[in-house]
Design a protein around this nucleic acid. Structure first.
Lengths: 127, 127
DNA sequence: ATGACTGTTATATCATAAGTATAACAAATT
DNA sequence: AATTTGTTATACTTATGATATAACAGTCAT
């Protein structure tokens, strides 16, 4: 999977990494049981420090996207804490919708935007 | 308007403040032309430093939610950069939907969640 | 068993950001 | 004249992000 890091972004490297991997899982570029690259390997590929990758993996583990196997490294393994996830999404959406509303983006446009994003990734994932 | 700060949150104080004010605007608790409390006054009310409030106001100004008037302080004044706003929302939604998908939250449930949030604030704002 | 590979842990260092604390300034209000 | 406004400057502490070496304990192939 191709991971793109924006070094000029204000978003932390390890969070960019985490988000890209979550996106990769959602679009089925990574599937349950797949191994992620080793921390050292991915760090070298991207050109960042090993610990930064390790931090991304640690966060992914804590948030229930991967489990760590001594043999296979970080392995995609989804832990579905549905209530927690729904609460998180709700809180994020609340702020997002407020911002949108202030910028005259309508509810209908949000719905449409969501459908568009789902359509974009439409062979493989996000569903 | 009641502003609630969570001092145990990992989210920066000035960002919590910013989000709450945006929420306040979206729900019409603040309306175009209204003045926000002065930085000193709000800081004292909440029990934080003046500069932290000032930072929140500065960000709100940069993001196009308020303008600053020497006489009236920070005044709600929405600058609609629609293209920019749409891009921002799209990028945020992309990650949010990926997370949701990984947690088995369906597209239909997202749509429903959005309608619920809009309904919650349904006399006064978010529309 | 040796060597190469995993994640993990421990220090250390540097840069930046967050938050606080005083203080002062110019513009406007009363 | 006194007060209040946002703004700016400086200084300090703390936390976080990122890097750099280094070592450790499992795992695996040869």
């Amino acid at each position: 999977m191709i991971i793109e890091i924006d070094f000029s972004s204000d978003e932390a490297l390890y969070l960019q990494l985490r988000n890209q991997i979550i996106l990769g899982i959602a679009t089925a570029q990574y599937r349950e049981g797949d191994s992620l690259p080793s921390v050292r390997q991915l760090a070298e590929t991207i050109g960042i420090n090993m610990h930064t990758v390790n931090k991304a993996y640690t966060v992914l583990k804590q948030e229930g996207y991967v489990k760590v196997d001594r043999r296979k490294g970080a392995v995609i393994a989804l832990d579905i804490d549905r209530m927690r996830a729904l609460n998180d999404v709700r809180r994020e959406l609340q702020v997002l919708l407020a911002k949108s509303s202030c910028k005259n983006i309508t509810k209908a446009e949000i719905h449409q935007l969501i459908d568009e994003i789902y359509d974009e990734y439409n062979n493989g994932g996000l569903g």
